[in-house]
């Protein structure tokens, strides 16, 4: 095990963490401001990826594809909010879980109806493909490095948005006291639609960015959705800071656990069964992490009251 490999794996963990943050930011905002638990957030991730693949197919431009993913996911999100979600704010979590579960069914099968059952093609643009050499002799894929940078930039932008802008103030006020900001004359339903569309756009962007190095297919959002939930629960629901901390923690744990657990097991087992046993434990690791954190801090790292 060389230190270069370890560093490279840390970068990989960072990249996964940054992607999870894009997903988790929207989820946690929507929960923080509207008190809504949205299982269909993964569908918006899928919408972004499909929109990007379709536009890249027509125009050949990756940049246009990214813009399309933002636009399509934001539009789908706004539509979802206007038609369904806004009827759920006053309901209990149970109704929210069920209604958004129903939305997953509609979005998944609807996408399959539109685009067919086979995965779509979306590739890394040529000027971003291939590896770059980093200081210390690490060869790292340029595209993944770009994802890390885009993700960190968006995280910074989001923090600025919330700390410095008018909308940010309204969002924070909404988190603190929902009735109050309505009383202050803020157009609350517009704010809600905006926040929901913003979260959706981030999820769509994540889907498009990841779609270029993974496969664009129906159901791609669900595994990410579950990870994103783990992230916001670890971080404390409603907290953007918590979402970032949780995302990086989950990204690192999942990546490093998957690499090092089998090697750890190989110290006292034969290689084949160590590979298998290590992989089994690694796949459960983030859930164990989440359970452990909730036992110590029942409302997550940065959570106030749930």
């Amino acid at each position: 095990m060389t230190y270069i490999l370890v560093l490279e794996q840390i970068l990989n963990g960072l990249q996964l963490g940054v992607m999870l943050f894009l997903m988790a930011a929207g989820l946690t905002l929507v929960f923080g401001v509207m008190g809504l638990i949205n299982l269909a957030h993964g569908s918006l991730y899928m919408v972004g990826a499909f929109a990007a693949a379709a536009v890249a197919g027509w125009t050949g431009s990756f940049l246009l594809a990214l813009i399309a993913s933002l636009a399509a996911a934001a539009a789908a999100g706004a539509l979802m909010e206007l038609v369904v979600i806004r009827r759920l704010y006053q309901r209990d979590h149970l109704d929210q879980v069920l209604a958004t579960f129903a939305l997953i069914l509609i979005f998944s099968e609807g996408t399959r109806w539109l685009f067919g059952s086979f995965p779509l093609f979306l590739d890394v643009p040529s000027h971003l493909s291939g590896p770059v050499s980093l200081p210390g002799g690490i060869e790292y894929p340029l595209y993944r490095l770009t994802i890390i940078l885009i993700g960190l930039a968006i995280a910074a932008g989001l923090f600025l948005l919330i700390a410095r802008t008018r909308i940010g103030i309204q969002i924070r006020a909404g988190e603190a006291d929902r009735e109050m900001i309505a009383a202050l004359g803020v157009d609350i339903s517009k704010l809600y639609t905006l926040v929901f569309a913003l979260g959706a756009a981030l999820a769509g962007l994540a889907g498009a960015l990841v779609g270029a190095i993974q496969s664009v297919q129906v159901g791609m959002g669900e595994p990410v959705l579950i990870l994103a939930f783990v992230v916001i629960v670890i971080g404390g629901i409603g907290s953007i800071k918590g979402a970032l901390a949780g995302a990086l923690l989950v990204g690192m744990t999942d990546t490093l656990g998957g690499v090092f657990l089998p090697q750890l097991f190989a110290v006292f087992m034969d290689p084949a069964s160590a590979a298998s046993a290590g992989a089994s434990l690694a796949s459960m690791l983030i859930y164990i992490l989440m359970a452990a954190i909730l036992l110590v801090r029942p409302s997550g790292l940065y959570g106030g009251s749930a």
């Binding site: 095990m1 894929p141 190095i213 990546t255 992989a279």
Partner: peptide
């Protein structure tokens, strides 16, 4: 090397790094 990945896994950066090394 011999690796078992997670079923349904979508990111193989870690495995590819191991292959490289």
């Amino acid at each position: 090397g011999e690796i078992y990945t997670k079923l349904g896994q979508t990111d193989y950066a870690a495995e590819i790094a191991q292959i490289r090394a």
